[in-house]
Amino acid sequence: MGATSHDEFRDFVAARRPTLLRAALLLTADRTEAEDLLQAALAKTYLAWDRIKDRTALDGYVRRAMVNINISWWRRRRLEEYPTDEMPDTPVADHTDRSELRDVLERLLDRLPARQRAYIRLRYYDDLTEAEIAHALGVSVGTVKSTVSRAMAKLREDADEEFAALD
């Protein structure tokens, strides 16, 4: 791999890492495993970098690599786990609190007007900057900032009400 290819790969990783890490997190549901998965997929991408002609398809290439690697890891783990009659000494982690919080957040997002919901998802789920959102939607950065600000205020207000109802 030449110096320019190496620089292109480094720039790609720097720009797309947060988004790709979120995709890996959706596949694994564990931050550490997601980081390992992304690293393995990027290593495969690095090895194939000069063979990838369509640079617009890089995200898809890395995502496909993550899916394939995750399936391989899952199969390997599945073969290494054996049932037992004895209970483990350490308690098993309870992840229901995270899923309940996610459900609450989804309900809160669903209450927002479509435009505000879209801006919040672009800003916090897709990790786009305000300038990137403005460019993508053809609006000013000020419009993005004010819309996100109003949406966050509404989410905070609704969240306070939601959690007060739970108590």
Rank of each mutant, 00 (worst) to 15 (best):
I69N: 00
E33D: 14
H135D: 15
Q39M: 08
K53T: 12
R63K: 07
D11Q: 01
D97L: 14
Y125F: 12
A118I: 06
A23M: 08
D36W: 03
Y125L: 15
D127I: 12
T45A: 07
R123S: 15
L79M: 08
E100P: 05
L112M: 02
R64E: 06
R64W: 11
R77P: 03
L37F: 00
E100D: 14
P91M: 08
K53W: 12
L20R: 04
D89A: 11
L128C: 03
Y46F: 02
D36I: 08
A65N: 13
Y82M: 11
A14R: 08
T84W: 04
T45H: 07
A118F: 07
L79Q: 14
T28V: 00
D50M: 01
D103N: 14
R115N: 05
I120F: 01
K44N: 05
D97K: 13
V92R: 06
I71S: 14
A93C: 13
A34V: 02
T129P: 09
I120A: 00
R16M: 12
Y61C: 15
V13R: 05
I120W: 03
W73I: 09
W74T: 12
R78L: 14
Y61Q: 15
Q39E: 15
A93Y: 13
S72I: 09
S99H: 15
I71E: 13
K53R: 11
R64I: 08
L128W: 01
N70W: 05
E86F: 14
A29I: 11
R10H: 11
E100V: 14
R10M: 13
A131Y: 04
R75E: 13
A43P: 06
G60P: 04
I133S: 05
L105I: 09
T56I: 09
A40Q: 15
M66T: 04
E106T: 13
V104G: 06
A114D: 08
R16L: 09
I52W: 04
E132A: 08
L101Q: 14
A40V: 10
A65S: 12
D36H: 07
T19F: 15
L25C: 03
D89M: 08
R102G: 07
L79K: 09
V104D: 14
E33R: 04
A15N: 01
T19W: 14
R115W: 06
D50Y: 01
M87F: 10
V67T: 06
F12R: 00
R63D: 11
V13H: 00
D11W: 01
V67F: 03
R22G: 07
L105A: 10
R98F: 13
R64Q: 13
A57I: 06
T96I: 01
L21G: 00
